[in-house]
């Protein structure tokens, strides 16, 4: 549905040339939730702005439904942009318009009649669960409510794609989860393709089907979330999955395993039963796990005894319970 072909974007400043996006080729499929993850300054936001041509590529082509957007003129672009909704980290609502008038705005542009506009806006308010805030102004809403209004506004013209530029980065964890839930619902119910830019692995874990890992303007790896998550190949992906300096444990001769939870029940005391059943001690070096809807997601680094038979039993236990693991914390290898 959206295809990047060798797209590069260079900015020219007094300090010289900055390559924000470097020869990126990507293919985003219809109906999927596609994540682009990377640290700040990786070029993710610049990349996503190419999809609706808010940024023009210096080189390469961008196709939307097999139409080359880089060849479209101003007027054609405006029509395309109605098929591509966008939400932002700072919400970017019109501060002097009511919630209803914010949602109606894209419909005004599309030339939809007044009655019809309001009807459509009310449907959308019901979808984002804000019917009672119809006549409120953005300043009267919480961050989560503002983002819901922004989502409703972005969906007003029934777009095929919704771009989310760090849409949850300004929100607390609980609100983040509910916004992501809403996005997933929109993806499933309305069949809207969603592209999500984020620096948080848990956002990708919660709703994305596929993910691209970006660093310094380059896509380092891309694939199904599960594959990237269980077996990250690039150092950026490893750092995103296991942030901070836990890596330092890995340079001596200790036996380290990285265990990945990918949706096992969070009610099972996996580590406790491991120590009991294998009659051994393990040392938890670091954990980054989260309970999403009763399922465990995340990573854990454990140190296990050096004895070969104990190691064998532990690995056997992990296999039996369907837990993915990797030796050496996955950083040496």
């Amino acid at each position: 549905m959206i295809r990047f072909e060798n797209v590069s974007k260079k900015f020219f400043s007094k300090d010289g040339e900055i390559v924000a996006v470097n020869n990126v080729s990507l293919n985003i499929k219809k109906g999927e939730v596609f994540g682009i993850i990377g640290f700040s300054g990786a070029g993710k936001s610049t990349l996503v702005r190419h999809i609706n041509l808010l940024e023009h590529p210096t080189e390469g082509n961008i196709f939307f439904d097999n139409v080359n957007l880089t060849e479209a003129n101003e007027k054609e672009l405006r029509v395309f942009r109605r098929k591509i909704g966008m939400i932002f980290q700072q919400f970017n609502l019109f501060s002097q318009r009511t919630v209803l008038d914010n949602i109606v705005y894209p419909l005004e542009l599309a030339g939809v009649g007044k009655k019809e506009r309001i009807k459509r806006a009310e449907e959308l308010l019901a979808l984002v669960d804000l019917v009672d805030k119809k006549y409120s102004y953005p300043s009267q809403l919480s961050g989560g409510q503002k983002q819901r209004v922004a989502i409703a506004r972005a969906l007003a013209t029934k777009p095929d794609v919704l771009l989310c530029d760090e849409a949850t980065s300004a929100l607390d964890p609980i609100t983040t989860r509910s916004i992501l839930g809403l996005l997933k619902e929109i993806n499933e119910k309305l069949g809207v393709t969603i592209v999500i830019i984020t620096h948080e692995m848990k956002v990708v874990e919660q709703i994305c089907d596929r993910v691209a890992v970006m660093s310094e303007g380059v896509i380092e790896e891309a694939g199904n979330v599960k594959d990237v998550f269980l077996n990250p190949k690039s150092s950026t992906a490893r750092r995103l999955i296991m942030p901070d300096d836990r890596v330092k444990y890995l340079y001596n001769d200790r036996r380290i395993l990285r265990i990945a939870f990918e949706g096992q029940s969070s009610y099972l005391p996996v580590v406790s039963s491991l120590t009991i059943q294998c009659e051994t001690m393990i040392n938890i070096l670091g954990a980054n796990t989260e309970n999403i809807g009763g399922k465990a997601y995340g990573q854990m680094l454990i140190e296990i005894p050096k004895e070969a038979d104990k190691e064998k039993r532990i690995k056997q236990y992990l296999d039996e319970h369907g837990l993915y693991y990797e030796e050496g914390g996955g950083v040496n290898g």
Partner: peptide
């Protein structure tokens, strides 16, 4: 006027006059 708001308007397909 917040540049982000103008960007949002652009992303929604507004013309310059709009």
């Amino acid at each position: 006027v917040d540049a982000g708001v103008i960007e949002a308007a652009k992303a929604m397909g507004s013309s310059k006059i709009q």
